[in-house]
Write a protein that binds this DNA or RNA. Sequence first.
DNA 1: CTACGATTTTGCAGCGCTGCAAAGACAGCA
DNA 2: TGCTGTCTTTGCAGCGCTGCAAAATCGTAG
Lengths: 345, 345
Amino acid sequence: MRREVTLRDVAELAGVSSRTVSNVVNGYANVTERTRVRVQRAVEELGYRPNVLARNLAQGRSGQIALVVPYLDTPYFSELLQSVIRAARVSGYNVLIDQTDGDPEHERAFIAHGSRRLLFDGVIFSPLGLDQQALVDRDTSLPLVILGERISDGTFDHIGIDDVAASREATEHLLGLGRQRVAAIGDQPYATGEAAQRRTRGFREAHQAHGRAVRDDLIIGTPRFNRIDGAQAMAHLLDLEEPPDAVFCYSDLVALGAIHTIVSRGLRVPEDVAVIGYDDIEDGRFSNPTVTTISPDKEMIATTAVERLVLRISSSTPPPGLEVRAPHRLIVRESTAGRAAQSSS
Amino acid sequence: MRREVTLRDVAELAGVSSRTVSNVVNGYANVTERTRVRVQRAVEELGYRPNVLARNLAQGRSGQIALVVPYLDTPYFSELLQSVIRAARVSGYNVLIDQTDGDPEHERAFIAHGSRRLLFDGVIFSPLGLDQQALVDRDTSLPLVILGERISDGTFDHIGIDDVAASREATEHLLGLGRQRVAAIGDQPYATGEAAQRRTRGFREAHQAHGRAVRDDLIIGTPRFNRIDGAQAMAHLLDLEEPPDAVFCYSDLVALGAIHTIVSRGLRVPEDVAVIGYDDIEDGRFSNPTVTTISPDKEMIATTAVERLVLRISSSTPPPGLEVRAPHRLIVRESTAGRAAQSSS
DNA sequence: CTACGATTTTGCAGCGCTGCAAAGACAGCA
DNA sequence: TGCTGTCTTTGCAGCGCTGCAAAATCGTAG
């Protein structure tokens, strides 16, 4: 395999210094049209491509941004990943993926002091079990953007939808259908379960707005937001003396698991139990029945996250922490509206 | 942000040359125990971490391997991705992900001459629409491992399950249930559809082995292996005068789409139509009904792929192309066995 | 005690690029 | 014509590491 073309090769051919070639390639100011053209021509003739590695070394950066997510095989995250990769590429960054498996220790290590600083220039973090303390202990010189439900303390950006409002809408949708006993699956009443707790808050607010009492025994906690968690929680709910006739699930996967249990007990969705999910993953559009859900604008979340992170990386003085609210909407499908909803997306 | 600790810093503290520190850090031979210990201590005291970038630059490699897949939000690929990342990290490589969207042009460009050679040291490629010509035109100096159904020409490794055999088993399972009209969804009778064609071959072989004729109008082509493709193809099949009573779907997503259509027509799975899928994605374990499927050993595929690629990268003389058959097995679930299968995983 | 081969350590150059500051070119003006 | 200020271009050093080959050290045989 032949040696790659370097800046120097181009410089020689164009009859200028390698520094000038660098200037042209990087579009720096103050290069005469004449030399620019000459260099440009040489670049093309030799098929020169900058060596990213060398550039990064010289600039003291790595050219990578890390995307830290709890699970990769969760559709929500893999859909997000796609958008992040696309956006990062536009800005000349590679995405380094890290799956934490929701392990708080692992999550903490990623943003703690020292860590593998050299491996990435910034982090887009979608924490699961990260507690407030980890954020306090973090290396504040590491550019950080957090996705999800955590409020920024001003030293990083935060992007997420309004979970409380979204959860309220979801619950109101169920109440609006005339359901009498609305359950919630996914609460996590402990320090690292902030995201879940906001959804529970929305759930309660909706009841309040409708002048309805929340039956606390219908709020079921789950360790994760998985199909299996949903399936088990639903089984528990159906075993109650007065089982619910509607369920707000804190993720579409939970909803799919719940539906699985309901149907395998010989009950019907939505006739016997209406189900609403959260995330709008593709699965929910083709499941049986299709799943009514809260759809966050994932593309916008990903794009904004990368944008902000890149800005943060290239700023000499750190920009103030931004609090970005991404839009969301309720998408009604069969699991609450029945077959009638079939035509909707 | 303070400067990072370098080799030289360690060298100074340990009272040796930086080259010796490098030797110790990299575990090279011929270092006295005495100096090794001394250096080791200095490394720990300063918290030295090698700069991967500089190392790679000096070694003329990038430290990245590319994983090229058609779609990332397809569960099969995101499950594979996880395993690949894990395996690559063990070998000190980063995974650079590229989604081709199945675009043949894009796929071709990735392994063609020149390409972005500097960005990655090797490629793990899961092609979709890649035709044989692209492989001929490829840059043979780029270490390559191909996943899927293509046979190696000796210049790269190939890892995949035996699709023909697996498809035969799947079809035989349906025939063994006593089904009379078995359909297949997913054929792609054109140059880039090799994978699909092997499945069709297995489908035919199974019929032959059972002394049954294949009804060609029951073999439906689909552009992709998606839910929507499965849903549409199934709709077409159900509109036939003699609709099938069993369907072999070339992916679990196709199967999920097909089931969706069947159920929304008021028919039952598996009573009216039995459905079998391919890939064993998690969705199929919690869908309603759960999906009988062919389960490839993804972990083994990923691990072997990385292993072979790393070997190929570090070999000065390219090793012969290996043809690896990963194991697969049939997992019977509700979509063919009915509720009775509930207990199986 | 010297010589020689084997082992361990070192110095230097260079991977390909960019930051920095200085040099050169050029135009305008006295 | 000489001088100044501005715009372009250049040279050099160095990012942190490793390849290479020479130098130093060591052990042992003569």
